[in-house]
Write a protein that binds this DNA or RNA. Structure first.
Lengths: 196, 196
DNA sequence: AAGATAAGTGAGCGAGCGCTCATTTAAAAA
DNA sequence: TTTTTAAATGAGCGCTCGCTCACTTATCTT
């Protein structure tokens, strides 16, 4: 029998990410995607049962990719400040090196497709980063607090900076650029907030 | 001449917000909207030149509504902790009282429609809340820092909590509910981060 | 009451949507 | 080499999309 053309599959996946990141979820379509990749619409349906599942599956795999990038070189037994800083650096590096993936991810995080992706990522993150926080609490480095409070204080500022950087949005006059210096500055505030 | 039926206009606007909030931007359409409101598609085009402008205008007005709600009872000469806390409370109250508006807002913040809305809101916020931060810096209550860093530390955690609350998402086992107690707890971390 | 004007309509245009099917193509198994 | 199998195709289905237009309706001015 004829084997799957794996390069075709990844071409479909990558083009889908590109189109959603660049033109928005609301302008994404299967026929358009097929034309852009250079395959028949029917070919896409060999690999995905329908449009929703295509988006779900791609979002999950892209989410897990980002997840593992964020946790690279990270160990849940690290001391708090060091471990959190590694996650910050990883997240920022990923955002810089993979702007398209970040924009894609951001489109889905607030769409009707978020549930499946959050499930997959949440599970992964809970396993690997959850223990880290519990260790820090046990060691008395930070207060005991709900996970949602922890996440909101420890990571929401970073994600906000990354988004400012993506958008090139300016609250001040000039265009914002997320430098290492600014990241360290913001990180120091977050550490001040969390450390006892 | 026949006058505009203002109740019809607001019915269109409210239904559009409802549909986008509930079904997502990618499932929103003019024919669908017209059917749901009980008017002709053509009627909608009396008030809006096209679909994009409808979304833009509604998003701007909804954004400004939220803006003024957040700044209610707020004065830029307040001391830092008090002024920030009022904005936090206002934002949370708005989110609780107007969940649909918040979900609508969240759909657009990361879509291709974000620019126009951010322009309008950014302008409004810069005027009224920008002076507040500069005062706090001048008084020596907080460090001088880029506006993006300030926003990311001062507000991103709150918006993150609001989103956890909206989604009913659970990082811990049970469903998350944004209580006054949790908000105060998180606020105390943010204040600890920012105050000298 | 008549005329003027803009609000409001319903049918439907062309285009593009998600998706399917009869068919062809390519590579593994025989 | 022939057979078998699934990958891959392209035309096109039924439908909905954003949007328009010839027309009717309601309310104002005269």
């Amino acid at each position: 029998m004829r084997p799957r053309d794996e390069s075709k599959i990844s071409a479909i996946n990558e083009k889908a990410i590109e189109m959603i990141a660049d033109e928005g979820l609301e302008n994404f379509g299967i026929n358009k995607l097929a034309r852009a990749v250079g395959v028949s619409p029917a070919t896409i349906y060999i690999y995905y049962p329908d449009k929703d599942e295509l988006i779900n599956q791609i979002s999950i795999s892209e989410g897990l990719k980002m997840c593992s990038a964020v946790l690279d070189g990270f160990d849940e037994n690290m001391n708090f400040e060091e471990g959190l800083w590694i996650q910050w650096q990883n997240r920022a590096s990923y955002a810089m090196a993979n702007q398209r993936g970040t924009r894609f991810f951001d489109q889905l995080r607030h769409s009707t497709y978020k549930e499946r992706m959050q499930e997959a990522i949440g599970e992964e993150m809970k396993k690997k980063a959850g223990g880290f926080v519990k260790n820090a609490i046990k060691r008395g480095e930070i207060n005991d607090m709900p996970m949602e409070v922890y996440w909101s204080v420890a990571f929401a500022p970073l994600y906000s900076l990354v988004k400012f950087n993506e958008d090139g949005y300016s609250l001040g006059g000039r265009k914002f650029k997320l430098t290492q210096k600014i990241m360290k500055e913001t990180f120091s505030y977050v550490i001040k907030a969390l450390k006892k």
